[in-house]
Computed example of a mutant assay.
Amino acid sequence: MKRTISYCLVYLATSVLLAGCNLVVFNPKGDVARDERDLIILATGLMLLVVIPVIVMTFLFAYRYRATNKKARYSPRWASSHKIEAVVWGVPFLIICVLGWVTSETTHALDPYRPLDSDVPHLNVQVVATDWKWLFIYPDLGIASVNELAIPVNTPVSFTVTSDAAMTSFFIPALGGQIYAMAGMQTKLHLIANEIGQYRGIAANYNGHGFSDMHFSTLALSGADYEAWVNKVKAAPGQLDQASYAELAKPSVAHKITYYSAVQERLFLDIVDKYEGMNKAPRKKETQVQRNSDDVRVNQQPSLLAEER
């Protein structure tokens, strides 16, 4: 009796805790996040078509063929049933076919490198993960911020992501899936916010003791509020160059929100180049081969066009 009461209390406490959870992934605030939520629900529902009947039949068979039930049919010479075989093999086959088609379609539709279809020009944001903070550079505006990302609502955002420390993952659950940030590499992510609000961004891959405090605020603002935010950053006294960035990149936990009104040209590329060793030749004696290499990089990374020029 005491054990039963203990189990009931555990279940009750678990239910209360789960009731307080904010299932942000199932409460999307952007088109990408909504499509990903629908995909999760569809895939889970298709798999439950097998899981639920199996669970139900397990208890049903255990009850029906219990030792005390003398009326249960006993067929010791039963060998096979074409109907059962059709269900056992046919249903999983159909589910796999549907999942395969859905996977093929959504793999391309939700490709993080694929620009979002929109009549509104993309906003380019360069993201640098350091220990343990996030740096956001707006190359077209020449400004930057730390641990605060501001984007205009209903505007597609093109993120170019790298790391200047251990590998981690850039993730805004309310807006869409995550993308890894790795030193010496650039990854791409396209998201959009369709509702005004403030959303939590996190590091979704463990990268040291400051991991739990490596989060940032994402502000989805109206056009006027976004312009006001940009003007506020442009009025900030701080400027981001190699020296100030070196100081910023030093490990720190729970770093406060910081604004930079000016950013040194090519800073993002210089951070990437620290690890991959590209474009190291002096700019004044640049060879034709190096210029061609730079042009290739620009063509491969359109969002970096402003910095390259």
Rank of each mutant, 00 (worst) to 15 (best):
P76H: 05
V233A: 08
L267D: 05
M1D: 13
T258F: 03
T4K: 09
W78V: 00
C97V: 10
D140I: 10
T130C: 07
L9F: 15
L12S: 14
Y206T: 13
C97R: 06
A72R: 06
D213C: 04
T160S: 10
T155V: 06
N207G: 12
V51P: 00
S244D: 11
Q178L: 08
V10T: 14
L267W: 04
V253W: 07
Y11C: 15
H190R: 04
C8G: 15
K71T: 07
S75Q: 09
A165Q: 11
G201W: 02
L135R: 10
L141Q: 15
T106A: 04
G30M: 06
A262H: 10
Y206W: 14
M167I: 15
K274Q: 14
P152C: 05
L221V: 12
P139R: 15
S244P: 07
P156L: 03
Y63D: 04
L219I: 10
E85M: 12
L269E: 08
A220Y: 11
K256P: 00
Y11N: 12
A165L: 09
A72Q: 08
Y275V: 01
R297T: 08
R73G: 02
N207V: 13
I196K: 11
Y180G: 09
V51D: 02
T103D: 00
T162V: 09
L17E: 01
R266E: 11
S217C: 09
T14D: 12
K29F: 00
L141K: 14
I192W: 00
A224Y: 03
V54Q: 04
S6R: 12
G210T: 13
A144V: 01
L175A: 14
R3M: 11
H122N: 11
H108F: 12
D225C: 03
G208N: 15
I55Q: 03
S15L: 15
A72P: 05
E227G: 05
L123I: 04
A86F: 11
V54L: 09
N27H: 11
P121S: 13
Q186I: 14
R291V: 01
W132R: 08
E148K: 13
I202F: 02
R291S: 01
D111F: 03
